[in-house]
Design a protein around this nucleic acid. Structure first.
Lengths: 118, 118
DNA sequence: GACATTACTTACATTTTTTATAGTACCACA
DNA sequence: TGTGGTACTATAAAAAATGTAAGTAATGTC
């Protein structure tokens, strides 16, 4: 993710759009490349870092970390660290995270319908 | 959009995800920076290129064109050119485009709820 | 003391997306 | 001849997102 340039036009545009349209705001939060899949998995219950990694065979650890951090920042997942060795960290959706279910469902439904058009 | 490199890992990952998850597939179609706003406007009825431009004061003509082209490719909007001078081009959602309404509604609702958490 | 395990972090490279700026074609109308 | 309006296109550059490869800390077990 690296820091985002707060002086860029791009940043201003994104801000303005997210401010005005809740749907764009929502999309900006769940729009990362791996975000939706991660949430889709987590909707079935909490998972450890390594479990997620195994479920998403092509994701790099860096990307997984970045996405989880962003989700955490946005209060969509909670992170619990167990003081063990080797370490154990569990990720779980927050209440608002679980409420994404209706969004995911709507996207799924529309996506399936759209796919049939090809 | 400039051509996308079909040999990149990124491309492969995107493909694989979209293939497996209809929700990710859907997100990949409507996930462009301006896509959702454009569709939100069009859901109220057809609009001309210039009208869209005025509704989205910060978008560049290039971006508007690119997004509309992508939406057209994905059969979400239809493009009607009138052989007049000066030219007139109208954009309208297709049936499947109009069906995005439920997705937009779900995003809106969740977005508003999430925003209150801040 | 070497090794394995887990959940990361860091530095760097590449790819993709978005923005900036300046054109173009068409013809009516002055 | 020149200007105006509309919907674009071309090219370059900046910014953002993603990927690659290597390394770290902690500690129980061999």
């Amino acid at each position: 993710m690296s820091k985002i340039k707060e002086t860029s036009t791009n940043f201003a545009n994104k801000q303005a759009l997210a401010d005005e349209c809740p749907e764009v705001y929502a999309a900006s939060i769940i729009g990362g490349q791996w975000t939706l899949v991660i949430c889709s998995w987590l909707i079935n219950g909490k998972l450890r870092f390594g479990e997620l990694k195994r479920l998403l065979p092509n994701i790099t650890e860096r990307m997984l970390t970045l996405q989880l951090r962003k989700l955490e920042e946005n209060k969509i997942v909670s992170r619990t660290v167990y003081a063990e060795v080797p370490p154990r960290v569990e990720y779980e959706l927050t209440p608002i995270g679980y409420e994404m279910k209706s969004v995911i469902k709507a996207l799924e439904k529309w996506g399936e319908k759209h796919k049939k058009l090809e």
